[in-house]
Computed example of a mutant assay.
Amino acid sequence: MEQHKYSISKWCTVSEEVVKRFDQVVFEGEKGDFVAFAKAYYKTNEIDYPKFFKMDALSKLAFIGSECLLMDEEFDKPTSDIALLFSNASSSLDTDLKHCESIIDKDSFYPSPAVFVYTLANICLAEVSIKHKLQSENAFFVTPSFDGDLMYTQVKYILETHRAKQVLCAWVEYLEGKYKFFGYMVGSYRQGELEHTRENIKEIYRR
């Protein structure tokens, strides 16, 4: 049986207030301030999604990284062509802790519903999907560290069963100010692009 070949068409990282695409710096923000950095990226790239400012940090991180990867895609109408596979190690713990603080805050009679809505890690999948009109397969995995083998297997399944034409994969980790986004797009094989293999996924993650 002939093996299907796929390629990694692009990749992006976001960490330490720097956004890189294809290993090239495309944006730098104020060091040590993720909130200011995220707001600056949003404004510099003239993104139109006012709900961005109400998101928790994890969703903002996923949103920024996804924007970097999807900026040259066309989204005139709803599509199921792009699936989303996200993962991290701490789920929504950063926001969970803030939610707990709001519950025990004696100055607050009720915990904030604006915080509570983000106490599920997969809410960031919804934010990206709404922004880009994606009506596609999506999943969020929680693993101790980035699992390239897991992502490779899931991507192959989605593409070979024709559930989508492309898959946006991402490691989206944010906890108490420390964060990293690593994302890449996989689709049909094209000459000159990086072949979608376990080894290549791990190699670009380490860069």
Rank of each mutant, 00 (worst) to 15 (best):
N88S: 12
F37C: 10
Y110Q: 11
F116P: 10
F27A: 04
S15Y: 04
K51R: 08
L120S: 14
R190L: 13
M55W: 11
A36C: 03
F75Q: 07
E17V: 00
K20C: 10
D23Y: 03
S129K: 13
A57Q: 04
P111E: 05
Y205D: 11
S87I: 01
K165H: 02
T79R: 02
K156A: 15
V186I: 02
T95V: 07
S59C: 02
E46W: 02
K165S: 02
E160S: 11
I103G: 11
T13M: 14
Q3W: 08
D33F: 08
G187P: 00
R163S: 11
C124D: 15
N88Q: 07
E16D: 15
L134R: 12
K180M: 15
L85K: 13
I204T: 08
P111T: 04
K106W: 03
A170Y: 04
D48E: 04
F181P: 00
P78L: 14
H99I: 09
V128Q: 15
M1C: 10
K98Y: 08
F75P: 09
D33W: 11
K31P: 14
D81R: 05
D107F: 12
K5C: 07
F52N: 07
A38P: 05
M151C: 08
D72M: 10
K165R: 03
F63R: 04
Q135N: 08
S87F: 00
V14S: 11
E176V: 03
G192S: 09
I204R: 04
L69Y: 13
D33S: 12
E101W: 06
V155F: 11
A114K: 07
V167T: 01
K156C: 06
L93T: 09
I82P: 07
S112D: 06
D94N: 08
Y118H: 05
V14D: 08
A139H: 09
C169A: 09
F52H: 06
V117Y: 07
E173L: 06
S188G: 02
K20S: 12
D72G: 12
C68H: 02
T161M: 13
S15G: 01
T119L: 11
E28Q: 14
H162F: 10
F141Y: 13
A89T: 05
E199A: 00
Y157V: 04
A36Q: 03
Y6R: 01
